[in-house]
Design a binder for these strands. Structure first.
Lengths: 183, 183
DNA sequence: GCAAACATGTAAGAGGTTACATGATTAC
DNA sequence: GTAATCATGTAACCTCTTACATGTTTGC
């Protein structure tokens, strides 16, 4: 999946691994996270497979050792072929907190409640972050980058998902906390 | 994480890898999935670490080659120690569909809509499954297994999460489909 | 001068996925 | 008899996580 995220971003223009990591951190990381170690090695692999090409930029003088990647025709074809194959199944959910809660009946109720309240804080922070992102940050950085409105509209649907997910999560946490309090 | 799921289930009683796989498939798989290959190898590893013990049951005559695992004192201690350490961070979400949607602006809108409508069907099926599970199936199998009410109450909160997640997902899909239709 | 941000990599180990492989038992 | 379910494993490969490792540039 990371492979296609990198190809997808490079389809907008040439970028370094660092740029891709930064871009991912403020966009796709909310539904697909990757470490820089993974990004750099995957880019090398994509280059070996002829899907991207790279050049170390020195002439710029300002920033040394920047390896900038460009999508090749084969890379663009690979990206489009992947997008053409519709997803036919549901991805498997992995929610650590639910695993813990599932086996928490024998724990001290106060310890469970503390854990849920901490998670509530974290999810509230994430929701606040999404709200801020949808109103300001995203708009400004996109206008500068001259990304087509159509692309922005699609990006917004994924941000909207994140927002709704956190709202749902907070409500479920509140109701679950109430239930455990009254046990 | 799988390690603790296996220890958690074995804490209710001795079981084979097959039993654990079956149990997981109708409970924790909704928030933590594992293949049977992973379960069998993890059980062997837990045994090597002294957290579980196993015996091949032959005397039963009926079912051959059943290797039944039992939690050791060390295993129970390991489970309780893990439960005592509250989760301090948010797990990373991985949602394949959002990755695809994020890079779908240049696709044929009808292809995107078809993909979203297919996902809508799958999520509706999952919601139906959860509704059926909460009303019938779970209750019956639990009464037979004599699981304490308290444990069942905790299990229900995770099922409730699954239900809410699917309801949220369906609404988001409907709204996203409408938006793309009107682009 | 120093901290933050920029910038790129390697390596070991853990975890997850797919395919291969086998065989018994039960219900129709 | 045959399909579904019960039952257990191995191997190859890929992906992910953590830690190690290094050096530059920019802003205060």
């Amino acid at each position: 999946m990371l492979k296609y995220i990198l190809l997808g971003f490079l389809n907008y223009g040439a970028m370094s691994g660092y740029d891709l990591k930064s871009l991912m951190d403020e966009s796709t990381a909310h539904f697909w996270h990757a470490y820089h170690s993974q990004i750099y090695t995957t880019l090398r692999k994509l280059e070996a497979d002829g899907l991207v090409e790279s050049d170390v930029i020195d002439d710029d003088e300002s920033r040394l050792n920047r390896r900038v990647y460009t999508l090749t025709a084969a890379g663009r074809a690979e990206l489009l072929a992947w997008l053409d194959q519709a997803l036919m199944s549901l991805p498997q959910v992995k929610e650590d907190l639910l695993v813990r809660l599932f086996f928490s009946a024998s724990r001290d109720p106060q310890a469970v409640l503390n854990e849920l309240r901490l998670q509530r804080q974290l999810h509230q922070q994430k929701l606040d972050y999404y709200e801020a992102l949808s109103s300001e940050h995203l708009l400004h950085s996109i206008e500068e980058a001259r990304i087509p409105d159509r692309d922005v509209a699609f990006w917004r649907t994924t941000l909207d998902f994140g927002r709704r997910f956190e709202v749902m999560y907070l409500r479920w946490l509140d109701d679950t906390i109430s239930q455990i309090e009254s046990l």
